[in-house]
Amino acid sequence: MRVSRILGVGATVLALTLSAAACGGPTNNDTGTQSLVDRIRAEKKVTIGIKFDQPGLGLKTGDMYSGFDVDVARYIAGKLGVPEDNITFKQSPSAQREDMIAKGDVDLVIATYTINDQRKAKVGFAGPYFVAGQDLLVRSSNTTITGPDKLNGKKICSVAGSTSAQTIKSKFSTSVGLQQYGGYSECITGLLNGAVDALSTDDIILAGYAAINPGELKVIGKPFTTENYGIGFKRDDTKTRQALNGYIQEMEQDGSWKAALMKNFGAGYKVPQPPAITEK
């Protein structure tokens, strides 16, 4: 008798808990009408997509995350009232960024994400928070490559299928040999042992590699494209866009933006002027 009474009480408690959870559920998860920033402020939690493999921008070493994108992410999360422990970083490779935002795997993407019209059709952008340009990384001893006009007969390395590789193909066509590899690290190996003459991609990414190979590699510093890095999130969320733009401007004005660049790219890096916000 006693056992069944205890079971009965237990069952009642369980039923009440379940029904409470069922009632609470819809109001908490109703993101359809709620703006992203409101939800982040209420939950004090945020999931941010970054790169895991780009020194200086987004790099995972053990359980630690570092880089300029990570610092921007932390600054914005802080402004949204999210404590640092409640930021979840997820890897968002270039080809998966739109899908991850659409599916809700990540709230924000801060991962060298160039703003363009094709992407704007699928995701919302705030920013830009940085303007990069495609540049060249060469061995420090190299004196023949002084700019994009001195590449005739040279071997240029870039990541297979990337925008940078496609630009090399379309801009320089036959005069330049293009070696494509699956990742930047193979290109760096090739550059250091002389199999290729230069690595070409966004200058800020190159600055990261120059910073971890001091004295061996240098960035030429004559960018020949313009890449506006923005923060990506679900489309049609004006409130989020305005809030993020505000935080980016605050970061640029209070010195944290410059400090983050100096921290990640070393003393030798020339910090540019902060870009104007274009996504309004």
């Binding site: 080809a95 699928k122 297979a160 299928g161 590789a165 494509q180 590899y181 699956g182």
Partner: peptide, 20 residues
């Protein structure tokens, strides 16, 4: 992975350009 322009490298290019 070593840059041979076969079908999957073209797929990578298409994914890069036509993310949607």
């Amino acid at each position: 992975a070593i840059g041979v322009a076969e079908a999957s490298l073209l797929m990578k290019e298409m994914l890069e350009n036509e993310g949607d």
